[in-house]
Amino acid sequence: MAGLSSTLLTSETARGLKRGDPAAQAEAYRVLAPPLMGMAQRILGDRGLAEEVVQDTFVSMIERAGSLRSAEAAVGWVRQTAVNHCLMRLRSPWQQRRIAGPMREAADPSQEAPRDENLRDLERALARLAPETRMVIWLHDVEGYTHREIGRLFGRTESFSKSQLARGYGKLTGKETVTGGEDDGFATTASVGPACAT
């Protein structure tokens, strides 16, 4: 299941991370790397870049876990670090050529692509969105960030996040008239259009 927000480390693993215990580091990687990879690949649309994000994040984790205020903060810290690394790559002109292109097909569909046809459609539709829009959608709806947090992350306003979210869903549903609403950016209007299968 996608998302780090629902991923937990055992308290033993988290405490081991703080102590720099290699077994705990390996366990944290085993638990956190797949959702982290899912997040990074869906935001960046590139498997190589996503692996770089995972690598940089875990190298940082190994070096800095000892400075965490509490063991419970480990997952949140890892997620925030990975998000920062994703954002850094979105902003890097050097990387933009890799990110802007269409998401690469999974090398081994049986291993990576969702078996559900609807989810495969969703992956494809997501890959066609602008990278910033993908990131806003993922952070808001999968990772549970607020619009305020997303706006701050991008150095923009809360409205930026809401409009990106609305625009993204407008494209995903084929309803370009989706408009901003009060709490989550939607007062969904009644236009018709080809919907992404869900």
Binding site: G3, E51, E112, L122, I137, D141, T173, T188, T198
Partner: peptide, 21 residues
């Protein structure tokens, strides 16, 4: 329309994790 977006959100959360190399 609202339900369609809610469905998309549920589907996003249902996307599988990805195993790294």
């Amino acid at each position: 329309a609202r339900g369609e977006i809610d469905g998309l959100r549920r589907s996003l959360r249902a996307l599988p994790d990805i195993e790294p190399d």
